[in-house]
Design a protein around this nucleic acid. Structure first.
Lengths: 254, 254
DNA sequence: TGAATACCTGATGTATACAGTAACTGGGAC
DNA sequence: GTCCCAGTTACTGTATACATCAGGTATTCA
Protein backbone atom coordinates (compact mmCIF):
# COMPACT_ATOMS: atom_id res chain seq x y z
CA UNK A 1 0.00 0.00 0.00
CA UNK A 2 2.05 2.87 -1.26
CA UNK A 3 1.46 6.38 -0.10
CA UNK A 4 1.38 9.59 -2.11
CA UNK A 5 -0.57 8.36 -5.11
CA UNK A 6 -0.84 11.95 -6.33
CA UNK A 7 2.72 13.18 -6.45
CA UNK A 8 3.96 9.81 -7.61
CA UNK A 9 3.03 10.82 -11.13
CA UNK A 10 6.55 12.04 -11.64
CA UNK A 11 7.89 8.53 -11.39
CA UNK A 12 5.16 6.07 -12.19
CA UNK A 13 4.00 7.68 -15.42
CA UNK A 14 6.40 7.33 -18.29
CA UNK A 15 8.14 10.32 -19.76
CA UNK A 16 6.41 9.63 -23.05
CA UNK A 17 2.95 10.00 -21.54
CA UNK A 18 4.03 13.08 -19.62
CA UNK A 19 5.31 14.69 -22.80
CA UNK A 20 2.16 13.70 -24.67
CA UNK A 21 -0.11 15.26 -22.06
CA UNK A 22 2.00 18.40 -21.83
CA UNK A 23 2.11 18.89 -25.58
CA UNK A 24 -1.60 18.22 -25.95
CA UNK A 25 -2.28 20.85 -23.31
CA UNK A 26 -0.08 23.30 -25.15
CA UNK A 27 -1.90 22.67 -28.40
CA UNK A 28 -5.40 22.88 -26.93
CA UNK A 29 -4.60 25.88 -24.78
CA UNK A 30 -3.36 27.67 -27.84
CA UNK A 31 0.27 28.04 -26.85
CA UNK A 32 1.15 26.33 -30.10
CA UNK A 33 -0.69 27.78 -33.03
CA UNK A 34 -2.03 25.88 -36.06
CA UNK A 35 0.41 25.68 -38.93
CA UNK A 36 3.28 26.32 -36.58
CA UNK A 37 6.15 23.90 -36.75
CA UNK A 38 6.82 22.14 -33.46
CA UNK A 39 10.47 22.23 -32.57
CA UNK A 40 11.61 19.12 -30.80
CA UNK A 41 14.22 20.96 -28.82
CA UNK A 42 11.68 23.52 -27.70
CA UNK A 43 9.33 20.72 -26.70
CA UNK A 44 12.17 19.13 -24.75
CA UNK A 45 12.54 22.35 -22.75
CA UNK A 46 8.86 22.86 -22.04
CA UNK A 47 8.04 19.25 -21.20
CA UNK A 48 11.18 18.35 -19.30
CA UNK A 49 11.42 15.02 -21.07
CA UNK A 50 14.24 14.03 -23.37
CA UNK A 51 14.13 13.99 -27.16
CA UNK A 52 13.25 10.31 -27.47
CA UNK A 53 10.01 10.40 -25.46
CA UNK A 54 9.16 13.75 -27.06
CA UNK A 55 9.44 12.23 -30.53
CA UNK A 56 7.33 9.33 -29.34
CA UNK A 57 4.68 11.72 -28.06
CA UNK A 58 4.72 13.64 -31.34
CA UNK A 59 4.08 10.47 -33.32
CA UNK A 60 1.17 9.57 -31.04
CA UNK A 61 -0.32 13.05 -31.30
CA UNK A 62 -0.08 12.82 -35.06
CA UNK A 63 -1.99 9.55 -35.03
CA UNK A 64 -4.45 11.19 -32.67
CA UNK A 65 -5.09 13.84 -35.30
CA UNK A 66 -3.80 16.91 -33.52
CA UNK A 67 -0.57 17.12 -35.48
CA UNK A 68 0.33 16.84 -39.13
CA UNK A 69 3.61 15.50 -40.48
CA UNK A 70 5.67 17.93 -42.52
CA UNK A 71 7.03 16.29 -45.70
CA UNK A 72 10.52 17.56 -45.09
CA UNK A 73 10.41 16.28 -41.53
CA UNK A 74 8.94 17.21 -38.20
CA UNK A 75 5.38 18.05 -37.25
CA UNK A 76 3.05 21.03 -37.24
CA UNK A 77 -0.18 21.74 -35.40
CA UNK A 78 -3.12 20.84 -37.57
CA UNK A 79 -5.64 23.53 -38.45
CA UNK A 80 -9.35 22.76 -38.32
CA UNK A 81 -12.15 24.50 -40.15
CA UNK A 82 -15.66 24.61 -38.73
CA UNK A 83 -16.66 22.13 -41.41
CA UNK A 84 -13.88 19.75 -40.36
CA UNK A 85 -15.22 19.78 -36.84
CA UNK A 86 -18.86 19.29 -37.74
CA UNK A 87 -17.86 16.45 -40.05
CA UNK A 88 -15.88 14.87 -37.22
CA UNK A 89 -18.94 15.07 -34.99
CA UNK A 90 -21.18 13.58 -37.66
CA UNK A 91 -18.59 10.85 -38.08
CA UNK A 92 -18.64 10.04 -34.39
CA UNK A 93 -22.43 10.04 -34.45
CA UNK A 94 -22.40 7.57 -37.32
CA UNK A 95 -20.07 5.24 -35.44
CA UNK A 96 -22.09 5.52 -32.24
CA UNK A 97 -25.17 4.80 -34.31
CA UNK A 98 -23.52 1.63 -35.55
CA UNK A 99 -22.66 0.68 -31.97
CA UNK A 100 -26.25 1.21 -30.87
CA UNK A 101 -27.51 -0.86 -33.78
CA UNK A 102 -25.09 -3.67 -32.97
CA UNK A 103 -26.26 -3.60 -29.37
CA UNK A 104 -29.90 -3.71 -30.41
CA UNK A 105 -29.48 -6.41 -33.03
CA UNK A 106 -27.24 -8.64 -31.00
CA UNK A 107 -29.19 -8.26 -27.83
CA UNK A 108 -28.25 -6.94 -24.43
CA UNK A 109 -29.13 -8.46 -21.10
CA UNK A 110 -30.99 -6.49 -18.44
CA UNK A 111 -27.90 -6.74 -16.28
CA UNK A 112 -25.79 -5.00 -18.88
CA UNK A 113 -28.32 -2.23 -19.27
CA UNK A 114 -28.35 -1.56 -15.54
CA UNK A 115 -25.43 0.92 -15.42
CA UNK A 116 -26.84 2.76 -18.43
CA UNK A 117 -30.15 3.22 -16.65
CA UNK A 118 -28.41 4.40 -13.50
CA UNK A 119 -26.55 6.94 -15.57
CA UNK A 120 -29.80 8.03 -17.16
CA UNK A 121 -31.42 8.48 -13.77
CA UNK A 122 -28.50 10.51 -12.49
CA UNK A 123 -28.76 12.89 -15.43
CA UNK A 124 -32.53 13.14 -14.87
CA UNK A 125 -31.79 14.16 -11.32
CA UNK A 126 -29.42 16.88 -12.53
CA UNK A 127 -31.88 18.30 -15.00
CA UNK A 128 -34.63 18.54 -12.40
CA UNK A 129 -33.23 21.78 -11.02
CA UNK A 130 -34.09 24.92 -12.94
CA UNK A 131 -32.04 26.84 -13.85
CA UNK A 132 -29.15 24.44 -14.10
CA UNK A 133 -26.12 25.47 -12.08
CA UNK A 134 -22.60 25.55 -13.44
CA UNK A 135 -21.72 22.65 -11.15
CA UNK A 136 -24.56 20.68 -12.65
CA UNK A 137 -23.21 21.38 -16.11
CA UNK A 138 -19.88 20.03 -15.03
CA UNK A 139 -21.49 16.90 -13.59
CA UNK A 140 -23.48 16.54 -16.78
CA UNK A 141 -20.29 16.43 -18.82
CA UNK A 142 -18.95 13.60 -16.66
CA UNK A 143 -22.16 11.59 -16.70
CA UNK A 144 -22.67 12.15 -20.41
CA UNK A 145 -19.18 10.89 -21.17
CA UNK A 146 -19.89 7.86 -19.01
CA UNK A 147 -23.18 7.17 -20.79
CA UNK A 148 -21.55 7.31 -24.20
CA UNK A 149 -18.71 5.08 -23.09
CA UNK A 150 -21.12 2.49 -21.67
CA UNK A 151 -23.24 2.59 -24.80
CA UNK A 152 -20.20 2.04 -26.98
CA UNK A 153 -19.22 -0.94 -24.87
CA UNK A 154 -22.65 -2.48 -25.44
CA UNK A 155 -21.72 -3.13 -29.06
CA UNK A 156 -19.27 -5.72 -27.76
CA UNK A 157 -17.18 -5.05 -30.85
CA UNK A 158 -13.54 -4.28 -30.04
CA UNK A 159 -12.75 -2.84 -33.49
CA UNK A 160 -15.73 -0.51 -33.31
CA UNK A 161 -14.98 0.54 -29.74
CA UNK A 162 -11.46 1.30 -30.80
CA UNK A 163 -12.56 3.46 -33.70
CA UNK A 164 -15.09 5.35 -31.62
CA UNK A 165 -12.41 6.07 -29.06
CA UNK A 166 -10.16 7.49 -31.74
CA UNK A 167 -13.00 9.51 -33.23
CA UNK A 168 -13.73 10.96 -29.80
CA UNK A 169 -10.09 11.72 -29.10
CA UNK A 170 -10.36 15.04 -30.84
CA UNK A 171 -11.76 17.20 -28.06
CA UNK A 172 -14.12 19.07 -30.36
CA UNK A 173 -15.59 15.82 -31.61
CA UNK A 174 -16.10 14.23 -28.20
CA UNK A 175 -19.64 13.71 -26.91
CA UNK A 176 -19.73 16.70 -24.60
CA UNK A 177 -17.15 18.85 -26.27
CA UNK A 178 -19.24 21.98 -26.41
CA UNK A 179 -21.56 21.57 -23.50
CA UNK A 180 -19.50 23.75 -21.21
CA UNK A 181 -18.87 26.32 -23.91
CA UNK A 182 -22.54 27.22 -24.01
CA UNK A 183 -23.47 26.70 -20.38
CA UNK A 184 -24.35 30.36 -20.00
CA UNK A 185 -26.74 30.46 -22.94
CA UNK A 186 -30.50 30.17 -22.48
CA UNK A 187 -30.75 27.50 -25.18
CA UNK A 188 -28.43 25.30 -23.16
CA UNK A 189 -31.08 23.81 -20.91
CA UNK A 190 -33.34 22.86 -23.77
CA UNK A 191 -30.51 21.17 -25.59
CA UNK A 192 -29.59 19.16 -22.51
CA UNK A 193 -33.20 18.07 -22.08
CA UNK A 194 -33.42 17.01 -25.72
CA UNK A 195 -30.14 15.16 -25.43
CA UNK A 196 -31.42 13.28 -22.41
CA UNK A 197 -34.54 12.32 -24.36
CA UNK A 198 -32.23 10.82 -27.01
CA UNK A 199 -30.47 8.84 -24.29
CA UNK A 200 -33.83 7.53 -23.10
CA UNK A 201 -34.94 6.58 -26.60
CA UNK A 202 -31.76 4.76 -27.53
CA UNK A 203 -32.00 2.59 -24.43
CA UNK A 204 -35.63 1.83 -25.18
CA UNK A 205 -34.74 0.95 -28.77
CA UNK A 206 -31.94 -1.36 -27.66
CA UNK A 207 -34.20 -3.07 -25.14
CA UNK A 208 -36.77 -3.72 -27.86
CA UNK A 209 -34.09 -4.74 -30.34
CA UNK A 210 -35.03 -1.97 -32.73
CA UNK A 211 -31.71 -1.57 -34.52
CA UNK A 212 -32.68 1.04 -37.07
CA UNK A 213 -34.31 3.24 -34.44
CA UNK A 214 -31.33 3.00 -32.11
CA UNK A 215 -28.98 3.92 -34.94
CA UNK A 216 -31.07 6.85 -36.14
CA UNK A 217 -31.44 8.40 -32.72
CA UNK A 218 -27.71 8.27 -32.03
CA UNK A 219 -27.02 10.01 -35.31
CA UNK A 220 -29.50 12.71 -34.48
CA UNK A 221 -27.99 12.93 -31.02
CA UNK A 222 -24.62 13.84 -32.49
CA UNK A 223 -26.22 16.61 -34.51
CA UNK A 224 -27.06 18.21 -31.19
CA UNK A 225 -23.32 18.59 -30.69
CA UNK A 226 -23.06 20.27 -34.08
CA UNK A 227 -25.70 22.71 -32.90
CA UNK A 228 -23.70 23.32 -29.75
CA UNK A 229 -20.66 24.00 -31.90
CA UNK A 230 -22.53 26.58 -33.98
CA UNK A 231 -23.89 28.23 -30.85
CA UNK A 232 -20.46 28.40 -29.28
CA UNK A 233 -18.93 29.91 -32.40
CA UNK A 234 -21.69 32.49 -32.78
CA UNK A 235 -21.34 33.52 -29.13
CA UNK A 236 -17.63 33.85 -28.96
CA UNK A 237 -17.79 35.21 -25.45
CA UNK A 238 -17.22 31.87 -23.84
CA UNK A 239 -14.52 30.62 -26.11
CA UNK A 240 -12.06 30.90 -23.26
CA UNK A 241 -13.35 27.53 -22.18
CA UNK A 242 -11.84 25.99 -25.29
CA UNK A 243 -9.13 28.38 -26.43
CA UNK A 244 -8.14 26.33 -29.43
CA UNK A 245 -11.53 27.10 -30.93
CA UNK A 246 -10.83 30.79 -31.04
CA UNK A 247 -8.67 30.17 -34.05
CA UNK A 248 -11.29 28.45 -36.15
CA UNK A 249 -11.95 30.56 -39.15
CA UNK A 250 -15.66 30.67 -39.83
CA UNK A 251 -14.75 31.80 -43.30
CA UNK A 252 -13.27 28.42 -43.98
CA UNK A 253 -16.67 26.80 -43.57
CA UNK A 254 -17.29 26.57 -47.27
CA UNK B 1 17.89 13.55 -63.10
CA UNK B 2 19.06 10.81 -60.86
CA UNK B 3 19.36 7.28 -62.09
CA UNK B 4 18.48 4.04 -60.34
CA UNK B 5 15.11 4.96 -58.87
CA UNK B 6 14.58 1.35 -57.88
CA UNK B 7 17.58 0.47 -55.81
CA UNK B 8 17.69 3.92 -54.30
CA UNK B 9 15.11 2.73 -51.78
CA UNK B 10 17.93 1.89 -49.43
CA UNK B 11 18.81 5.54 -49.07
CA UNK B 12 15.80 7.64 -49.95
CA UNK B 13 13.32 5.84 -47.72
CA UNK B 14 13.80 6.40 -44.04
CA UNK B 15 14.82 3.56 -41.78
CA UNK B 16 11.55 3.97 -39.91
CA UNK B 17 9.46 3.27 -43.01
CA UNK B 18 11.69 0.39 -43.98
CA UNK B 19 11.28 -1.17 -40.55
CA UNK B 20 7.54 -0.58 -40.63
CA UNK B 21 7.14 -2.31 -43.98
CA UNK B 22 9.37 -5.20 -42.98
CA UNK B 23 7.55 -5.77 -39.70
CA UNK B 24 4.15 -5.52 -41.34
CA UNK B 25 5.22 -8.13 -43.84
CA UNK B 26 6.39 -10.38 -41.06
CA UNK B 27 3.07 -10.04 -39.26
CA UNK B 28 0.91 -10.60 -42.32
CA UNK B 29 3.02 -13.43 -43.65
CA UNK B 30 2.67 -15.16 -40.33
CA UNK B 31 6.31 -15.11 -39.26
CA UNK B 32 5.18 -13.41 -36.09
CA UNK B 33 2.27 -15.15 -34.48
CA UNK B 34 -0.68 -13.50 -32.68
CA UNK B 35 -0.14 -13.10 -28.97
CA UNK B 36 3.59 -13.35 -29.43
CA UNK B 37 5.67 -10.61 -27.88
CA UNK B 38 7.76 -8.73 -30.40
CA UNK B 39 11.32 -8.40 -29.26
CA UNK B 40 12.88 -5.12 -30.28
CA UNK B 41 16.33 -6.64 -30.53
CA UNK B 42 15.04 -9.42 -32.72
CA UNK B 43 13.29 -6.86 -34.92
CA UNK B 44 16.54 -4.93 -35.14
CA UNK B 45 18.23 -8.02 -36.54
CA UNK B 46 15.53 -8.91 -39.06
CA UNK B 47 14.91 -5.37 -40.33
CA UNK B 48 18.47 -4.10 -40.33
CA UNK B 49 17.40 -0.80 -38.80
CA UNK B 50 18.47 0.41 -35.39
CA UNK B 51 16.38 0.33 -32.24
CA UNK B 52 15.09 3.88 -32.54
CA UNK B 53 13.42 3.49 -35.95
CA UNK B 54 12.21 0.03 -34.94
CA UNK B 55 10.47 1.50 -31.88
CA UNK B 56 8.98 4.18 -34.10
CA UNK B 57 7.67 1.55 -36.49
CA UNK B 58 6.20 -0.45 -33.60
CA UNK B 59 4.28 2.58 -32.36
CA UNK B 60 2.91 3.24 -35.84
CA UNK B 61 1.89 -0.39 -36.28
CA UNK B 62 0.11 -0.26 -32.96
CA UNK B 63 -1.87 2.78 -34.09
CA UNK B 64 -2.54 0.95 -37.31
CA UNK B 65 -4.17 -1.83 -35.32
CA UNK B 66 -1.82 -4.69 -36.08
CA UNK B 67 -0.08 -4.58 -32.72
CA UNK B 68 -1.26 -4.31 -29.15
CA UNK B 69 0.66 -2.66 -26.33
CA UNK B 70 1.58 -4.89 -23.42
CA UNK B 71 0.89 -3.17 -20.08
CA UNK B 72 4.29 -4.03 -18.70
CA UNK B 73 5.94 -2.70 -21.85
CA UNK B 74 6.54 -3.72 -25.40
CA UNK B 75 4.11 -4.92 -28.06
CA UNK B 76 2.49 -8.13 -29.18
CA UNK B 77 0.79 -9.15 -32.41
CA UNK B 78 -2.93 -8.64 -32.13
CA UNK B 79 -5.23 -11.60 -32.59
CA UNK B 80 -8.39 -11.25 -34.64
CA UNK B 81 -11.50 -13.35 -34.50
CA UNK B 82 -13.73 -13.80 -37.52
CA UNK B 83 -16.23 -11.53 -35.85
CA UNK B 84 -13.61 -8.83 -35.38
CA UNK B 85 -12.90 -8.89 -39.09
CA UNK B 86 -16.51 -8.84 -40.21
CA UNK B 87 -17.17 -5.98 -37.81
CA UNK B 88 -14.20 -4.09 -39.25
CA UNK B 89 -15.60 -4.56 -42.73
CA UNK B 90 -19.05 -3.41 -41.64
CA UNK B 91 -17.37 -0.43 -40.03
CA UNK B 92 -15.59 0.48 -43.23
CA UNK B 93 -18.83 0.08 -45.15
CA UNK B 94 -20.57 2.43 -42.76
CA UNK B 95 -17.88 5.06 -43.22
CA UNK B 96 -17.90 4.67 -47.00
CA UNK B 97 -21.66 4.99 -46.84
CA UNK B 98 -21.25 8.28 -45.03
CA UNK B 99 -18.76 9.42 -47.66
CA UNK B 100 -21.18 8.53 -50.45
CA UNK B 101 -23.98 10.37 -48.67
CA UNK B 102 -21.81 13.45 -48.21
CA UNK B 103 -20.94 13.36 -51.89
CA UNK B 104 -24.59 13.04 -52.89
CA UNK B 105 -25.88 15.68 -50.51
CA UNK B 106 -23.17 18.20 -51.16
CA UNK B 107 -23.15 17.71 -54.88
CA UNK B 108 -20.43 16.61 -57.22
CA UNK B 109 -19.60 18.13 -60.59
CA UNK B 110 -19.58 16.06 -63.78
CA UNK B 111 -15.88 16.72 -64.01
CA UNK B 112 -15.25 15.13 -60.63
CA UNK B 113 -17.30 12.07 -61.55
CA UNK B 114 -15.31 11.52 -64.73
CA UNK B 115 -12.49 9.40 -63.23
CA UNK B 116 -15.05 7.31 -61.32
CA UNK B 117 -16.88 6.53 -64.54
CA UNK B 118 -13.67 5.66 -66.31
CA UNK B 119 -12.87 3.27 -63.51
CA UNK B 120 -16.35 1.78 -63.80
CA UNK B 121 -15.91 1.28 -67.55
CA UNK B 122 -12.54 -0.38 -67.05
CA UNK B 123 -14.02 -2.88 -64.62
CA UNK B 124 -16.90 -3.51 -67.02
CA UNK B 125 -14.32 -4.35 -69.66
CA UNK B 126 -12.65 -6.82 -67.30
CA UNK B 127 -15.88 -8.57 -66.41
CA UNK B 128 -16.83 -9.03 -70.05
CA UNK B 129 -14.58 -12.07 -70.39
CA UNK B 130 -15.96 -15.34 -69.11
CA UNK B 131 -14.50 -17.05 -67.24
CA UNK B 132 -12.43 -14.36 -65.58
CA UNK B 133 -8.69 -14.99 -65.69
CA UNK B 134 -6.41 -14.73 -62.69
CA UNK B 135 -4.78 -11.69 -64.27
CA UNK B 136 -8.19 -10.09 -64.53
CA UNK B 137 -8.75 -10.74 -60.85
CA UNK B 138 -5.53 -8.99 -60.09
CA UNK B 139 -6.48 -6.02 -62.26
CA UNK B 140 -9.86 -5.97 -60.57
CA UNK B 141 -8.22 -5.58 -57.17
CA UNK B 142 -6.27 -2.56 -58.41
CA UNK B 143 -9.22 -0.91 -60.11
CA UNK B 144 -11.53 -1.63 -57.20
CA UNK B 145 -9.11 -0.03 -54.76
CA UNK B 146 -8.91 2.98 -57.06
CA UNK B 147 -12.68 3.24 -57.29
CA UNK B 148 -13.06 3.18 -53.52
CA UNK B 149 -10.32 5.75 -53.07
CA UNK B 150 -11.90 8.10 -55.60
CA UNK B 151 -15.32 7.67 -54.03
CA UNK B 152 -13.93 8.48 -50.62
CA UNK B 153 -12.33 11.62 -52.01
CA UNK B 154 -15.71 12.76 -53.34
CA UNK B 155 -16.87 13.40 -49.80
CA UNK B 156 -14.40 16.27 -49.70
CA UNK B 157 -14.15 15.74 -45.96
CA UNK B 158 -10.57 15.40 -44.73
CA UNK B 159 -11.54 13.96 -41.33
CA UNK B 160 -13.72 11.32 -42.96
CA UNK B 161 -11.12 10.47 -45.60
CA UNK B 162 -8.60 10.05 -42.84
CA UNK B 163 -10.80 7.70 -40.87
CA UNK B 164 -11.66 5.60 -43.90
CA UNK B 165 -7.98 5.26 -44.67
CA UNK B 166 -7.33 4.00 -41.18
CA UNK B 167 -10.29 1.65 -41.31
CA UNK B 168 -8.95 0.24 -44.59
CA UNK B 169 -5.41 -0.09 -43.27
CA UNK B 170 -6.18 -3.49 -41.82
CA UNK B 171 -5.68 -5.69 -44.86
CA UNK B 172 -8.70 -7.89 -44.07
CA UNK B 173 -10.94 -4.84 -43.85
CA UNK B 174 -9.78 -3.21 -47.07
CA UNK B 175 -12.17 -3.05 -50.03
CA UNK B 176 -10.72 -5.96 -51.95
CA UNK B 177 -9.15 -7.87 -49.11
CA UNK B 178 -10.67 -11.21 -49.99
CA UNK B 179 -11.17 -10.96 -53.70
CA UNK B 180 -8.01 -12.83 -54.51
CA UNK B 181 -8.59 -15.40 -51.81
CA UNK B 182 -11.65 -16.71 -53.60
CA UNK B 183 -10.60 -16.20 -57.19
CA UNK B 184 -10.79 -19.91 -57.85
CA UNK B 185 -14.32 -20.34 -56.57
CA UNK B 186 -17.28 -20.46 -58.93
CA UNK B 187 -19.20 -17.90 -56.83
CA UNK B 188 -16.43 -15.41 -57.42
CA UNK B 189 -17.66 -14.15 -60.77
CA UNK B 190 -21.15 -13.53 -59.52
CA UNK B 191 -19.89 -11.60 -56.55
CA UNK B 192 -17.73 -9.41 -58.78
CA UNK B 193 -20.68 -8.69 -61.05
CA UNK B 194 -22.87 -7.78 -58.09
CA UNK B 195 -20.13 -5.56 -56.69
CA UNK B 196 -19.86 -3.75 -59.99
CA UNK B 197 -23.62 -3.21 -59.95
CA UNK B 198 -23.20 -1.56 -56.56
CA UNK B 199 -20.52 0.69 -58.03
CA UNK B 200 -22.88 1.67 -60.81
CA UNK B 201 -25.75 2.38 -58.44
CA UNK B 202 -23.73 4.51 -56.05
CA UNK B 203 -22.56 6.75 -58.88
CA UNK B 204 -26.12 7.06 -60.15
CA UNK B 205 -27.31 7.93 -56.66
CA UNK B 206 -24.62 10.57 -56.21
CA UNK B 207 -25.44 12.10 -59.59
CA UNK B 208 -29.09 12.37 -58.63
CA UNK B 209 -28.22 13.60 -55.15
CA UNK B 210 -29.95 10.66 -53.51
CA UNK B 211 -28.03 10.59 -50.24
CA UNK B 212 -29.89 7.79 -48.49
CA UNK B 213 -29.65 5.52 -51.53
CA UNK B 214 -25.95 6.17 -51.98
CA UNK B 215 -25.33 5.41 -48.31
CA UNK B 216 -27.41 2.24 -48.27
CA UNK B 217 -25.77 0.75 -51.34
CA UNK B 218 -22.26 1.31 -50.01
CA UNK B 219 -23.19 -0.44 -46.80
CA UNK B 220 -24.57 -3.37 -48.73
CA UNK B 221 -21.46 -3.30 -50.88
CA UNK B 222 -19.27 -3.88 -47.85
CA UNK B 223 -21.37 -6.89 -46.87
CA UNK B 224 -20.18 -8.46 -50.09
CA UNK B 225 -16.72 -8.41 -48.57
CA UNK B 226 -18.07 -10.15 -45.49
CA UNK B 227 -19.43 -12.84 -47.79
CA UNK B 228 -16.05 -13.13 -49.42
CA UNK B 229 -14.51 -13.54 -45.98
CA UNK B 230 -16.90 -16.36 -45.10
CA UNK B 231 -16.24 -18.06 -48.42
CA UNK B 232 -12.52 -17.80 -47.98
CA UNK B 233 -12.66 -19.23 -44.47
CA UNK B 234 -14.94 -22.10 -45.50
CA UNK B 235 -12.63 -23.00 -48.39
CA UNK B 236 -9.35 -22.89 -46.61
CA UNK B 237 -7.52 -24.18 -49.64
CA UNK B 238 -6.54 -20.73 -50.82
CA UNK B 239 -5.57 -19.26 -47.50
CA UNK B 240 -1.98 -19.21 -48.65
CA UNK B 241 -2.84 -15.93 -50.33
CA UNK B 242 -3.36 -14.35 -46.93
CA UNK B 243 -1.41 -16.48 -44.49
CA UNK B 244 -2.35 -14.40 -41.49
CA UNK B 245 -5.92 -15.58 -41.92
CA UNK B 246 -4.98 -19.18 -41.38
CA UNK B 247 -4.77 -18.41 -37.69
CA UNK B 248 -8.27 -17.07 -37.31
CA UNK B 249 -10.15 -19.36 -35.04
CA UNK B 250 -13.63 -19.91 -36.39
CA UNK B 251 -14.55 -21.02 -32.92
CA UNK B 252 -14.03 -17.48 -31.69
CA UNK B 253 -16.86 -16.25 -33.88
CA UNK B 254 -19.33 -16.16 -31.05
C1' DT C 1 20.59 47.01 -57.51
C1' DG C 2 19.12 42.41 -58.08
C1' DA C 3 19.94 37.68 -58.44
C1' DA C 4 22.51 33.61 -57.73
C1' DT C 5 25.61 30.85 -55.24
C1' DA C 6 28.03 29.29 -51.37
C1' DC C 7 28.39 28.83 -46.67
C1' DC C 8 26.55 28.28 -42.25
C1' DT C 9 23.25 27.29 -38.76
C1' DG C 10 19.78 24.69 -37.01
C1' DA C 11 16.89 21.12 -37.49
C1' DT C 12 15.59 16.14 -37.80
C1' DG C 13 16.80 11.10 -38.38
C1' DT C 14 19.72 7.61 -36.53
C1' DA C 15 22.67 4.98 -33.53
C1' DT C 16 24.14 3.52 -29.18
C1' DA C 17 25.09 3.61 -24.20
C1' DC C 18 22.91 3.33 -19.65
C1' DA C 19 19.52 2.48 -15.99
C1' DG C 20 15.56 0.40 -14.09
C1' DT C 21 12.37 -3.17 -13.99
C1' DA C 22 9.91 -7.34 -14.99
C1' DA C 23 10.16 -12.11 -15.98
C1' DC C 24 12.43 -16.47 -15.60
C1' DT C 25 15.17 -19.94 -13.45
C1' DG C 26 17.41 -22.33 -9.91
C1' DG C 27 17.77 -23.63 -5.30
C1' DG C 28 16.12 -24.37 -0.82
C1' DA C 29 12.66 -25.26 2.64
C1' DC C 30 8.33 -27.10 4.12
C1' DG D 1 7.05 -33.17 -4.48
C1' DT D 2 5.61 -28.59 -4.46
C1' DC D 3 5.84 -23.92 -3.36
C1' DC D 4 8.29 -19.80 -2.42
C1' DC D 5 12.12 -16.76 -2.53
C1' DA D 6 16.23 -14.90 -4.33
C1' DG D 7 19.40 -14.15 -7.92
C1' DT D 8 20.19 -13.39 -12.55
C1' DT D 9 19.18 -12.26 -17.13
C1' DA D 10 17.30 -9.74 -20.64
C1' DC D 11 14.16 -6.63 -21.96
C1' DT D 12 12.21 -1.97 -22.39
C1' DG D 13 12.40 3.12 -21.45
C1' DT D 14 15.43 6.98 -21.52
C1' DA D 15 19.22 9.99 -22.56
C1' DT D 16 22.64 11.73 -25.50
C1' DA D 17 26.03 11.91 -29.24
C1' DC D 18 26.59 11.98 -34.28
C1' DA D 19 25.52 12.59 -39.26
C1' DT D 20 22.91 14.28 -42.77
C1' DC D 21 19.90 17.55 -44.85
C1' DA D 22 17.03 21.58 -45.48
C1' DG D 23 16.61 26.41 -45.06
C1' DG D 24 18.30 30.94 -44.45
C1' DT D 25 21.59 34.57 -44.92
C1' DA D 26 25.36 36.97 -46.59
C1' DT D 27 28.40 37.96 -50.15
C1' DT D 28 29.76 38.47 -54.75
C1' DC D 29 29.15 39.05 -59.56
C1' DA D 30 26.61 40.76 -63.46
Amino acid sequence: MKAAPEREVDRSVSQTVKAQLALRDQILSGSLRPGERISELQAVETTGASRTPVRMALVRLEEEGLLEAIPSGGFMVKAFSERDISDSIELRGTLEGLAARFAAERGVSARELEPLKECLAAIDELLRQVPISVDAFSSYVTLNARFHALLTELSRSPPLIRQIDRASALPFASPSGFVMAQSALPEAQQILIIGQEHHRVVIDAIENREGARAEAVMREHARLAVRNLRLALRNRTHLDLLPALARISSAATE
